[in-house]
């Protein structure tokens, strides 16, 4: 029994990188906080883009002599300070690098980042950059649960992953099977989600593995089809029946 207590206690606060934000409609949004590595990657892409722009302009402006050098300095200044701010404000919190890495800057409450916050976080970038290449920023991120660098702490912003996986998934179409009629056997929302997940991802598993997984869900498998005729439980493939149930759950009836 102590082992069971231990198990339950430990399993309750499961570790994840989600931050929940309540919104006025009474719904909780889950934001997937992004850590130092993906953010450094996005920054690297942005750095590359800015370098290419500067280099290309340098080739053209080189013809202008000292005026060209002056212009270069000005453009370099704007690329350093205005580039992130303008992109974050006008492109839904995404610089090109963040876009490439599926990241986005938001206010802590999940709203799109605005001028104030964006300017603040990008000005304090200079402090994060100290002493070389984001030394302070990295330490701040490692010590912070939301992976915020100093600029994020000051501006009240958060960098999150955007969900891109869901859109690409397609559930195989199968004749829908209604879940079992007994009310106490009704599936909870989480369980329904798991059944739909199973159907969506079935193609990525081998047949054996899919059958193994489906066997765990055997208690929830439908025993009658849409015409209220009993399903041949001995011979019918459990995985197929689960996919049929998922088809019912997503509303294909």
């Amino acid at each position: 029994m102590p082992r069971l207590i231990n198990h339950v206690l430990k399993s309750l606060p499961l570790l994840d990188t989600l931050r929940t934000v309540p919104i006025p409609e009474g719904i909780e949004l889950s934001l997937k906080v992004a850590g130092p590595m993906p953010r450094a990657r996005a920054w690297g892409f942005d750095l590359l883009i800015r370098m290419v722009i500067l280099l290309a302009l340098g080739l053209i402006l080189g013809a202008l002599g000292k005026v060209g050098v002056g212009l270069m300095a000005l453009i370099g200044f704007f690329l350093e300070w205005a580039y992130p701010v303008l992109f974050e404000v006008f492109r839904q919190g995404q610089t090109p690098g963040k876009r490439a890495c599926d990241l986005r800057v938001l206010h802590e409450d999940g709203t799109p980042v605005q001028w104030r916050a964006s300017v603040a976080r990008n000005l304090i970038r200079a402090v994060d950059f100290l002493p070389v290449c984001y030394g302070f920023g990295l330490i701040a991120m490692l010590m912070n649960r939301d992976f915020k660098r100093l600029g994020d702490l000051a501006a009240g912003t958060i960098v999150v992953h955007i969900d891109t996986s869901r859109a690409s998934k397609r559930m195989p179409v199968a004749p829908p099977l209604a879940p079992n009629a007994a009310p106490q056997m009704a599936l909870t929302l989480t369980e329904q989600r798991a059944v739909i997940d199973f159907a969506e991802r079935r193609a990525t598993w081998s047949t054996e593995r899919a059958n193994e997984l489906a066997a765990y869900a055997s208690a929830a498998l439908p025993v009658v089809n849409s015409n209220n005729e009993p399903v041949d439980t001995e011979n019918a493939n459990a995985a197929n029946r689960l996919v049929q149930l998922a088809n019912f759950l997503v509303g294909r009836r």
């Binding site: 198990h7 399993s11 570790l15 990188t17 989600l18 997937k32 130092p36 590595m37 992953h161």
Partner: peptide
């Protein structure tokens, strides 16, 4: 059942963040 991390499909880069959160915790 005993896993102390939340299992959900993540992108590989999100998984890296989870690794960082593990060390933090």
């Amino acid at each position: 059942e005993n896993m102390a991390i939340a299992l959900r499909p993540r992108s590989a880069w999100e998984a890296i963040d989870l690794g960082y959160a593990m060390v933090q915790t």
